[in-house]
Write a protein that binds this DNA or RNA. Sequence first.
DNA 1: CTGTTAGCGCCTTCAC
DNA 2: GTGAAGGCGCTAACAG
Lengths: 340, 340
Amino acid sequence: MSSSAALQQHARAKPQRVSIRDVAERAGVSIATVSRALNSGVEINPDTRAQVVQVARDLGYVASARGRGLVSGRTDSVGVIIGREHLPVFLNPFYGEVLGSIELELEARGLNLVLTSLKRDHQLLAFAAAQRVDGLLVIGHDLPVSTLRDMQGHLPVVLIDRHEEGLSAVTSEHRTACAQITRHLIAQGSTRLAFLAEDLGNPNFQQRFLGFQDALKEAGLPLRPDWVQEASPRLGGGYTAITRVLEAGDGVPDGVVGANDPVALEAIRALLDAGLKVPDNVQVVGFDGLPSRLHLMALTSMQIDRQELGRRAARLLLETPDTPQHLELQPHFVKGDSSR
Amino acid sequence: MSSSAALQQHARAKPQRVSIRDVAERAGVSIATVSRALNSGVEINPDTRAQVVQVARDLGYVASARGRGLVSGRTDSVGVIIGREHLPVFLNPFYGEVLGSIELELEARGLNLVLTSLKRDHQLLAFAAAQRVDGLLVIGHDLPVSTLRDMQGHLPVVLIDRHEEGLSAVTSEHRTACAQITRHLIAQGSTRLAFLAEDLGNPNFQQRFLGFQDALKEAGLPLRPDWVQEASPRLGGGYTAITRVLEAGDGVPDGVVGANDPVALEAIRALLDAGLKVPDNVQVVGFDGLPSRLHLMALTSMQIDRQELGRRAARLLLETPDTPQHLELQPHFVKGDSSR
DNA sequence: CTGTTAGCGCCTTCAC
DNA sequence: GTGAAGGCGCTAACAG
């Protein structure tokens, strides 16, 4: 921490902030009156109030969040934790949009947003225990349940995109949604289907995979083990994953389900590079429904309302912090140019 | 604020947090000793310390950030303000990456990140005055200089991607960089050049436009007014902008400079839709150098080191909060598939 | 080395 | 309707 010493010194060195005492003195009243006048709770002589308000404005007085927090027991801020698995967080706009809608909800209530994505378990615990925030929104899967529960011992917690017993959560439905989009591929003539997921250990992706299998089964189509590929970034993502499918020796699939949009887009790039046409030779679909303005092509996908995800989570946290609830949102089908 | 009443109640209703007094009592020492033992500053009997540390651990004690902040005068957190012009902030990964590198710097020093992008001027002032953070990092251009200066009266401020007299800033060089990439187009045979920018009023884009003109002038090429188009999202972005160029009646450009990558990519989409080939018929370049994995094509662009932008800004804030400094980073040329 | 005491800035009883 | 006083949780200065 030595290198932030300068900033800390600065804080001390700053010319005295104007405190409630300064206002009181200048207005010729007690600090209690200033507090009352400004926080407009109790009844108070309108003239006195006007006077105090005026002086406060002149002096540029704003109550210290620290002092106020100490007595109120609140911080007026909410923490948002984004799992490290999503780093760099903002390369996938998914969580960025969730974050944006959360901020909207908080700001509307005068609450501040404390963002963190790098803390380890014990740091998160300390963060929660130090009461830096009044509540916590947790996005992503890489925290142990035990840590989540421990944190909930300190303050209200709402999970986003993940569900655990006894904790509030807002999630999307994955299984039937993925079955739905797989059926679309099948209805449009695909019979040789591949499935790619960033991480097959992720419960959400597992659900999507189950949905994929449901649709295959319904249609009496085979599940080819070689055509289920992990597309983690460290393995080269969707590009390498689909390349492995092509090289598996089973021929070329005519339908690809990417467990999320980035993977599907990377796969499309690889297919095009391999001289195939999308969607003519191979149809490809994704999952998430990211905005496609800049993308390779408009993807057929299951769109998740990311705004709603953040909004509902924030409201759960703010309005019913003590009642564990689970909301599940249903994604909806969006037809793009990557399928017929 | 009525709707966040629940969360606030919750905070009060929680079972008593364990305070320094609890630890002191249980350990049979005074609260001062607990403080000393835990903050490991002064000399203290190792046994006493061990004992206190043990009790603190048993009780799950973590010093309240509020109480500590009140006496230290610090908050151990830094605010990051992202201009509203960039909303939805995270659809352009540019600022997301800056934010990521800022978080890295802060986290390494045990500082928290308070994010805000929706506050209006007076709310920002109040935020700064309430001393919710020890310093401020400001990304973007839509705040009046006066507001910035007022905020600096309360705490150290560092601007990112913008420079104002008397305030610390980390920016990128735009003019010669844009001239450089325009020269590239010209060197590769383009003579009929168009320029598209999200917002021609933005000083950074203006500098890029100047660089574009510098390069034209050097090469003795004309600047066609109709081929300089605003590509703001509300006007339909780069897609509509280049469409207006095509419809201007001056024929088809053979080179397009987008003032940032998204605009260039949108333009490429429109050009392809119009039956043109990129880069064969028209070369297109962008500016920013965003990761292109999912994009329409790998863009030739001037890459800005976004990590460095955030990192340097954070360090300026943390290490020399009282010395206004201006750092300018030089973007570097990256060849993609959108130019020859 | 450790305990006592005095605030940090504010809100909130409790008197007046 | 307003002032005085206490205390939120903690650190730091001062005794011992």
